[in-house]
């Protein structure tokens, strides 16, 4: 059961300190955590997610090393918060059930267990451990555009059977139209006994519209990040979602003005660049590519002298899923080799 001071029509989960971590290459400092948690907590956000962008244990060669060990940051968030619950994301195959035991000791209250949208059965062990610890367990199906409404229902029911308290679908590639979102949410809300949540990305500039559409079709949890900080062209911006919800007469229980202050005064100053939909960001949504690949592809393109857009398109063509960042190097090397071969034979590069 979740209760907030004000009766909200949906529960807002802010992921600035988790999904936002991608956009700053996992360089969060202790002071950032203190300021962002304090700001979100004051604004009335009920749940704050924090972890490496790829979940607990994500600090690695493959996804980028954290500047500060994430468990130190998580412990600090638990210490600083007054009302908001602290949540962590964990991807089975990257993080361990043992990690859940550790974060439970720190005071984390919510565990989001994430899998690709067709692989829910790898979450059984971790959802059950989370529940046995007394954590709220959220099953989180990523890249939801790659599965049909019926397919998502099948996977969500598995997570529900393992004990998940809430099921989320994530448009991790920011690839869904409002119609795509509606049919999925509709099917899931009808099939599930537990509440549904939606995590949207903005690669097609649809994040806020899709989140509102998800709410109107029965989703009871929505995700955002401050100033949209996050993978790809960014997430659904929490302060905009709150403002738009208010215009629709949807009660969020949060203070949009306090969220605007946080975005402007705390988050924008630490952003290495504005969260805009440039060509590469748009390609992610257009070709259905995992958002976190963006900056890794940019670095590989520069290193091997190939086009970032070509890398992203090829990753989409190969149907790569979240977590396969190593394949960005693979694709870049292949493109570089093809260019070299074409030049050697005098063909078209």
């Amino acid at each position: 059961m979740t209760t907030t001071a004000v009766k909200a029509d949906y529960r807002l989960i802010d992921s600035t300190l988790r999904d936002g971590s991608h956009a700053i290459s996992h360089q969060y400092r202790m002071d950032d955590v203190i300021q962002i948690v304090t700001g979100l907590d004051r604004a009335g956000v009920p749940v704050i997610e924090i972890a490496h962008g790829d979940g607990i244990g994500g600090s690695s060669f493959n996804y980028g090393f954290s500047a500060v060990p994430e468990k130190e940051l998580i412990a600090k968030a638990c210490e600083v918060t007054t009302n908001a619950k602290i949540a962590c994301l964990l991807l089975p195959g990257i993080g361990l059930a043992d990690d859940l035991r550790e974060i439970n000791e720190m005071g984390v209250k919510v565990a989001r267990i994430a899998t690709h949208c067709t692989e829910a059965d790898i979450s059984e062990q971790h959802i059950k451990v989370a529940k046995s610890l007394g954590l709220e367990a959220i099953g989180f199906l990523m890249m939801a555009h790659m599965n049909s409404p019926e397919g998502l229902v099948e996977e969500a029911l598995k997570m529900q059977s393992y004990g998940a308290d809430t099921i989320y679908i994530a448009d991790s590639a920011g690839a869904m139209t409002t119609e795509d979102m509606k049919v999925r949410v509709d099917a899931l809300v009808q099939a599930l006994e537990v509440p549904l949540g939606v995590h949207a990305h903005n690669n097609l500039a649809m994040a806020v519209a899709n989140s509102i559409a998800a709410y109107e079709n029965g989703a009871k949890n929505l995700d955002g990040t401050s100033a949209g900080l996050g993978a790809g062209a960014g997430n659904c911006p929490t302060e905009i979602l709150a403002a738009v919800s208010s215009k629709y007469g949807i009660e969020t229980g949060v203070d949009p003005l306090a969220l605007m202050d946080l975005a402007e005064e705390v988050v924008r100053p630490i952003m290495p660049r504005a969260q805009v939909i440039d060509r590469a960001g748009l390609i992610l949504g257009y070709a259905g590519v995992y958002g976190s690949f963006l900056l890794h592809a940019e670095r590989a393109a520069e290193r091997y002298g190939v086009s970032q857009a070509d890398i992203l398109f090829e990753l989409g063509r190969r149907q790569m899923v979240g977590g396969q960042e190593d394949m960005i190097i693979d694709v870049a090397l292949e493109l570089a080799r093809k260019h070299a071969e074409a030049e050697a034979t005098g063909g078209e590069a």
Binding site: S60, N62, G93, I94, H116, T118, E119, I122, R318, Q319, M320, V321, G322, G323, Q324, D326, M327, I329, D330
Partner: peptide
């Protein structure tokens, strides 16, 4: 160590990095 499952059709060859 990290493991990822990929459901692509036709199935991908096992990849290790």
């Amino acid at each position: 160590a990290i493991i990822i499952l990929n459901p692509a059709e036709p199935p991908i060859m096992m990849r290790n990095t």
